[in-house]
Nucleic acid binder design. Structure first.
Lengths: 342, 342
DNA sequence: CACAGAAATGACAGCGCTGTCACAGCACCA
DNA sequence: TGGTGCTGTGACAGCGCTGTCATTTCTGTG
């Protein structure tokens, strides 16, 4: 309330504490305070002590807007995800943030899940903060976005998918391979009919299509499929299951493109008093934390979401610190986890 | 690749496009470009057109670090939440971000859910970005945090709880009232035994305690309670239910401090082939999107999480724009939604 | 037709920090 | 004893933008 304004000089009001104030109090120059904060090993121990005391006394909080402008490094990493309210992405982002914060970077999130906001607009907004790197979900971007992104001249990591020609680095897995693997799993179990509850999302649809591909090659033709809106929810899982059951699906296996959908499918089946997995089996996707604990426990495709975040952070840091990046294409793979629902 | 660097003047490399570049191309001064971007109605239509063309041609993206430094307004709002991977908070944050982005503000998230990171440290980091306002979850902050926050001299909104003495503004509901209301609901249903699966979190514990208070006043003494770690998960719901059932709880109602826990409780009960709600009834908390669609549909306490985000954004904007704030304490209330699980 | 007042534009300084270069002081070795 | 190289510190300019005030041009009115 009162210990501000050492110099009531200017017409601008309520002077916040600046580097200069701290420097004056510590009896050193501003640049020394800067070094004491950012590269303390380049400052003599006694000087450091004086500076630290001055900082404590004043309650100085550095201004990273100014720092970023001067150093041309904002210490900000942008991440664009389809929805922060989707657990699928949040566990990845959580590890991503955590790894980066250890290195002194902060993550700023952009939510691309609002159809009314153009992706390009979002990217512009984000880039105006001058992030030192950017995390993207997916590998499909509009040409204008690609241009913006490339012009920004910062490290980029695309995630959740794979492409032979990433903008910079890509960390993900092959959705077609997932589809094929699930198809083989289904075939090995000799289910007579196969149902699909698929979210209306490019990657989910690809997984479904590639499952179907192998299935029809192998002569499995009793297929019941429905597409539900993205993002997935338990409700849409129930609706999807209801649909295919009413179309005549009465036994076999249902492959859902997310564990959340699968959870809804389980509920719908149970509400009809149909036994799982004896009459209808269910396969999810993602291996969310809850998948192992539903009743019955869910057979699903495990994706190491945390690892995506970790690898993305590592790759970005390597690029930023101009260390060599071993691999521009990082495939984290997947595995089928068999539990009680099949 | 080539249309950069109009002036290869300095030793600094790879010149990005700046306001000055755009101004030169448009044949106006830098400040006019600034106005064309920020206050277009103060610029003549023809000038605006010229400037817009120059911006399009160059692909100029404003630098908000510089802008924020000069204008002393970062257009950034900080939000501190226990975990971005928790849907309870993410739906609030989503609406909060959305409302603010319409007004030209961006939200930067801080995750306070890592016990190894001190809250004070988090707040410092966030404040170093010079946000124009801050969103806090909960009303309990360490004294050092309060000081930091107050010294920042920016609008603050605390959420998810109520207090007679907010730092600035508070948007939430009364957890004790929730407990009382649930107790009355339980009494009205005449359950003989009451179980609690409670997350180890201050607000959840308060809800449980206040439920218990009314219950014991009314002579209900057959109580089975267990506390599970926060954040809540389906798994802990199952574990909690298992515990109280093994302690002898065989009929009545279980009140869970989150819908996620309740979902786990449902699963555990079903896995034991106990009928819901005839033998054991279940009450959740939060009314998450899935609550209406579980099997059986979950009776729960509805909290309008989106409204918390909306009101918080509105209040913050009012403060920032120096409009009067009608109410510093905003109680959004709650309601009990009765479904099939009771 | 002169002049007040609004509308449109520009010049300039400075927001708070850091990169760069310069320099003082000191230990060490031939 | 002089030079070499290191450590610690400071002066200075400038990052890219906007607040402020000054200036010019364009209305409309009596």
């Amino acid at each position: 309330m009162n210990k501000n304004n050492t110099t009531t000089d200017k017409h601008r009001s309520s002077a916040a504490i600046t580097l200069d104030n701290v420097a004056k109090i510590a009896g050193v120059s501003a640049i020394t305070v800067s070094r004491a904060i950012n590269t303390p090993d380049k400052v003599a121990p006694e000087t450091l002590k004086k500076v630290r005391e001055a900082i404590d006394k004043t309650g100085y909080v550095p201004n990273l807007l100014a720092g970023g402008l001067a150093s041309r490094s904002s210490k900000l990493i942008a991440a664009i995800v389809p929805s922060i309210a989707n657990l699928v992405y949040s566990s990845t982002i959580r590890l991503f943030s955590k790894s980066l914060s250890k290195a002194g970077y902060q993550v700023i999130l952009g939510d691309s899940g609002y159809p009314e906001v153009l992706e390009e607009e979002l990217v512009r907004t984000i880039l105006s903060r001058r992030p030192d790197g950017i995390f993207l979900t997916g590998v499909d971007h509009s040409p204008s976005c690609r241009n913006l992104l490339l012009a920004a001249n910062i490290p980029i990591v695309e995630t959740w998918d794979l492409t032979p020609s990433p903008l910079d680095i890509v960390v993900g897995f092959n959705h077609m391979d997932v589809g094929h693997a699930v198809a083989k799993f289904i075939l090995s179990k000799k289910y007579n009919k196969v149902g699909f509850v698929t979210a209306n999302d490019a990657r989910a649809l690809l997984r479904q299509r590639s499952t179907l591909e192998i299935l029809s090659q192998s002569g499995v033709s009793d297929i019941y499929a429905t597409t539900v809106p993205a993002p997935t929810s338990l409700e849409y899982g129930r609706i999807g299951a209801k649909q295919i059951i009413e179309e005549g699906f009465d036994s076999g296996v249902i492959f859902c493109t997310s564990d959340t959908l699968a959870q809804g499918v389980l509920a719908e089946i149970q509400s009809r008093n149909i036994s799982i997995p004896d009459t209808i089996a269910v396969i999810g996707f993602g291996d969310q934390v809850f998948a192992a604990h539903t009743y019955p426990a869910l057979t699903t495709v495990r994706i190491d979401r945390e690892r995506i975040g970790q690898e993305a952070a590592d790759a970005l840091l390597a690029r930023i610190q101009k260390r060599p990046v071993k691999n521009k294409i990082i495939d984290i793979g997947f595995s089928i986890i068999e539990r009680e629902s099949t």
